[in-house]
Design a protein around this nucleic acid. Structure first.
Length: 642
DNA sequence: TTAGGGTTAG
């Protein structure tokens, strides 16, 4: 009797220990099926023998129930084993097993992970009951596959059903708030977040600040970031990336430095965002330093990071380094190719663009995409290879690479035709293309009219532009330049009146130059730089010397209605001239000058830089909003077309 | 069981 009792106690203890190890699912346990089958299945699964595990399930038939399905479905999810998962699902149906909520949710997760959203949704719709996890799993499936509106509408349905969202749901749903109404949806979710007190949760907070940053609301992003009770790599990276994406490059770099000092950990994503900011600044010395950090930390094998480095070096003007990074990537993605192609294109190196594009086609490992063709077409345009570009467009239309041109590619063709002076043909092309012309397309044609001094087409195009984009000052400037160059001052005056009427404002011009790892920024007519007086003197000195050599300030670049003397003063205050003067003051004779400008360079500054390169024997490179100008001996790589 | 940040182009 005593012996039997003792035995029962041992059995009971065994069951209890099993219960605690399998958490809350103990009610399904039976000594008959568990533990031998369970441990056998687990062993098979962990050995990767999913097939054998399935066979074992089939042999055991209905005896398996929860534990068996759970074990094998778990393994299917971990390995994204769709076929095996489907067989388990079929097995459930065949044996008329009625899965509980937990297993149904596992099926939803499995199908979502394997990109079978319809199957996931089917299981989800058939669920007799749902909890926050099943809702979140389905929302996450949509969210991660880019089906934002489905995810958002499911989120709304979830709230209506009375299920409260948790931190997982909120962090998953926020990334769906993109596009036109993204900010509105985002703000509504923000209010839900506040209601449930998740604003300072690190995952929810990073998602929230990212949403604001992507909507261009940097201050709101910053407010969320400042309110986080705990910060980690992701939230910090999100903030740095937010700054970088919106062009707050200095803030991005400063935040990175500050956080580094505070001991924040960083990973390859952090460096990617940091490189974006350094690319914007064209801070070559700092970029090289970051490259060294990446090498030392052995992060260099991330393709994303290598792509960022190609872009950084190209935007800093060093194509040789960019190419070296490109050549060392073992598995290039389409973005690696594009970054390199865009690099050559912006530097006006048309033949390099074509050569690399041929290599890409010949290798055939990576398919060109929309950006590839934009880079190739604009590369032909910047490099003065109009007919080659037009030929490639024809190949696109003929579907040589299985890729149809979109409106932006049509825009490139307008650019190519305009550049080669075929303005009437460009007008006809716009008229016949299958898209409605955008302001950018008219804008590029207007630029072409200015370069080729074609008033007739220019007037027509200008009127179209002012109609679509009355607030864009750049359009008035080009049109006014066009009238001025034809001596039609009456029209220039009318245009100026029109500008005043529409209260057009221009983004303030800004240029900078990197000297010994420090960026020196100048604004138009800047009086804030510590060496402003020296700079001013230098510009005056340059003006005298350049005039002796034949330079004549192009007063038509000034739109204000003032005396010519005043116009010359305004021109001499242009930020790129200040940066060039400062460069001459701070570097030794013969060394190259590298200036960055936030807007497109004006004709007068371009001419000014050409004279400097010739008279002072300097290679001058200027990166403007559109492209690089490499000026040597008074000749610019853009061929005076930009 | 479910979650957040990143690269080219414009």
């Amino acid at each position: 009797m005593l012996k039997t009792l003792k035995q029962s106690a041992i059995v009971a203890k065994h069951i209890l220990s099993l219960s605690s190890s399998t958490k809350s699912f103990t009610r399904h346990l039976s000594i008959k099926t568990f533990p031998p089958l369970q441990s056998k299945l687990s062993a098979l699964c962990s050995n990767g023998q999913l097939q054998d595990a399935l066979l074992e399930m089939a042999v055991q038939g209905l005896e398996i129930k929860f534990e068996g399905y759970d074990t094998i479905l778990n393994e299917c999810v971990n390995r994204k084993a769709l076929r095996e998962g489907q067989r388990v699902h079929t097995h459930m149906i065949k044996t008329q097993y009625f899965p509980p909520l937990y297993l149904r949710t596992r099926l939803v997760i499995l199908y979502c992970k394997c990109d079978c959203l319809d199957d996931a949704r089917h299981v989800f719709d058939e669920m007799p009951e749902r909890n926050v996890v099943s809702w979140t799993a389905m929302i996450s499936g949509y969210s991660q596959n880019g089906f934002s509106s489905e995810a958002l509408s499911l989120f709304v349905q979830m709230l209506r059903s009375g299920t409260e969202p948790n931190e997982f749901t909120l962090a998953t749903t926020l990334p769906c708030c993109t596009g036109d109404c993204g900010l509105d949806y985002g703000r509504q979710i923000h209010s839900v977040i506040i209601r449930y007190n998740y604003e300072s949760h690190v995952f929810v907070g990073s998602s929230l600040l990212d949403m604001y940053a992507k909507a261009g609301k940097i201050h709101e992003a910053q407010r969320v970031f400042d309110g986080l009770v705990e910060r980690d790599v992701v939230s910090c990276t999100a903030m740095i990336a937010g700054y970088a994406q919106l062009g707050f490059d200095v803030e991005a770099v400063e935040l990175f430095r500050r956080l580094l000092k505070e001991g924040m950990s960083s990973n390859y994503v952090t460096y990617t965002s940091l490189l974006t900011a350094l690319s914007g600044l064209a801070a070559l010395d700092q970029g090289k330093q970051v490259h060294n950090h990446i090498l030392r930390r052995e992060l260099v094998s991330y393709v994303v990071l290598q792509n960022s480095m190609i872009d950084m070096y190209a935007k800093c003007g060093n194509l040789m380094y960019a190419r070296r990074v490109f050549d060392r990537i073992p598995e290039r993605s389409v973005i690696s190719w594009n970054a390199m192609l865009v690099g050559y294109s912006k530097h006006g190196m048309g033949s390099n663009v074509i050569e690399l594009f041929k290599l890409m086609r010949a290798e055939g490992k990576v398919k060109p995409d929309s950006v590839t063709f934009l880079a190739v077409l604009s590369g032909c345009s910047h490099g003065g290879m109009e007919d080659t570009g037009l030929g490639i467009f024809d190949e696109m239309v003929a579907q040589k690479d299985g890729f149809m041109p979109n409106i932006e590619h049509y825009g490139c063709v307008v650019d190519l035709l305009g550049r080669s002076g075929r303005l009437e043909q460009a007008l006809k092309f716009i008229d016949e293309m299958p898209y409605k012309p955008t302001a950018a397309i008219w804008g590029s044609l207007l630029g072409a009219c200015k370069v080729h001094s074609n008033i007739d087409v220019g007037e027509y195009v200008g009127s179209k532009l002012v109609e679509i984009e009355p607030e864009n000052a750049g359009n008035y400037v080009i049109l006014s330049n066009l009238y001025a160059s034809a001596g039609r001052w009456e029209e220039v005056r009318n245009l100026r009146e029109l500008m005043k009427e529409k209260a057009v404002s221009k983004e303030p011009g800004r240029s900078w130059i990197e000297i010994d790892q420090t960026l020196h920024t100048f604004h138009a007519s800047d009086r804030s730089h510590p060496r402003k007086d020296e700079v001013q003197m230098k510009v005056k000195e340059l003006l005298v010397r350049l005039k002796e050599a034949g330079y004549e300030p192009d007063l038509s670049c000034v739109l204000y209605d003032v005396e010519d003397e005043q116009k010359e003063k305004i021109l001499m205050g242009h930020s790129e001239k200040l940066a060039l003067a400062f460069g001459l003051l701070s570097t030794c004779e013969g060394s190259p000058l590298r200036v960055i400008k936030n807007l497109r360079i004006c004709v007068d500054c371009h001419n000014f830089a050409k004279f400097i390169s010739k008279l002072y024997g300097r290679q001058v490179s200027i990166r403007d909003k559109n492209r690089f100008h490499h000026i040597k001996g008074g000749v610019c790589s853009c061929g005076d077309y930009w």
